[in-house]
């Protein structure tokens, strides 16, 4: 009894010390220093760097003060809409292609070389051609976002099938599975985690590409906001836009992680 009391006391003491040295304190110090440093440099160099406060005000103003005819949230919605449309197209085309490439060596031999040829060309490089073909409207943007988003989808779907442990096929065969059941019960579920990893990369790629596309000719969207901030020499608008872009990127990736946990609850095994 007495011993456990002493242990308790030291435990509390150790915990307190740990906390003071813990990373959370360091995190707080780091963030505070960062904001102070930012504020001081902004004060000295106001024309180029907005103060943190100004960025915040810019964002709050954006809630009901339109920029180029639309409020901030509408701009964000335009970017998201482009991403979702292109993302859906990329998934609908990319997953079947990737699965087929992983499943059949013959199909792979036909598609892989073309795919390898296209892969090193950044999707953004296609924007000029897309504009030439489709004009500055939605189609050209969606087109290059699809180009950007489809690569990881195809790659991961393909590898997802390739990297399935062959003994799982042995197991299903020993249990009496035919080739149709083999695909339904092993191939698809076993490649799901890899496909999902591809979808995650793909979504962040799509987000990057939409920003890039909007930088190059748009009348709305988050990319437009920051390039507009540049052309009207309003750094607070640029940094505020960047913040919104970053937070959205972060939210999208959190969303995908949650979705993944929902759809592949067994995946934790792969991470250990």
């Amino acid at each position: 009894m007495a011993i456990s009391k002493i242990e308790n006391k030291t435990a509390v003491k150790i915990a307190l010390l740990e906390f003071l040295r813990s990373k959370y304190i360091l995190y707080a110090i780091s963030l505070i220093l960062f904001i102070i440093f930012w504020d001081i440099s902004a004060k000295m160099n106001g024309r180029f760097l907005p103060r943190p406060w100004a960025v915040l005000m810019e964002l709050i103003n954006g809630i009901n003060e339109p920029i180029a005819g639309k409020i901030l949230i509408v701009h964000l919605w335009y970017s998201l809409k482009r991403v979702f449309i292109a993302y859906a197209i990329a998934i609908a085309i990319g997953i079947p292609i990737g699965l087929l490439m992983g499943y059949s060596k013959l199909i792979n031999a036909w598609i892989k070389p073309i795919f390898d040829l296209f892969k090193p060309m950044p999707p953004i490089a296609w924007i000029s051609l897309a504009i030439l073909w489709f004009g500055i409207g939605e189609t050209s943007k969606v087109f290059i976002i699809v180009l950007g988003a489809i690569v990881p989808v195809i790659l991961n779907s393909m590898n997802g099938i390739r990297l399935i442990d062959p003994s799982l096929y042995h197991a299903i065969r020993m249990l009496g599975g035919n080739s149709r059941q083999e695909i339904l019960e092993v191939t698809l579920p076993a490649s799901l985690p890899a496909i999902f990893a591809g979808l995650q990369i793909s979504l962040s790629m799509a987000w990057t590409t939409v920003v890039a596309a909007e930088l190059m000719g748009a009348r709305e969207g988050m990319g437009f906001i920051i390039i507009r901030g540049m052309s009207v020499s309003n750094p607070a608008m640029i940094v505020g836009g960047m913040l919104v872009i970053a937070v959205t990127a972060w939210l999208l990736s959190v969303l995908m992680t949650l979705l993944e946990r929902r759809i592949c609850p067994w995946k934790t095994e792969l991470e250990h």
């Binding site: 990373k23 220093l33 020499s233 960047m242 937070v247 990736s253």
Partner: peptide, 30 residues
């Protein structure tokens, strides 16, 4: 090194989700 991790990581976590292309306008501005 834990202290370096603690001090740098938050800044890095802020930097990380910003798509690099989003830096272009600010960079041109600077």
């Amino acid at each position: 090194f834990k202290p370096i991790d603690g001090l740098i990581r938050p800044l890095f976590e802020i930097l990380r989700p910003i798509p690099p292309v989003a830096w272009i306008p600010l960079t041109i501005f600077w």
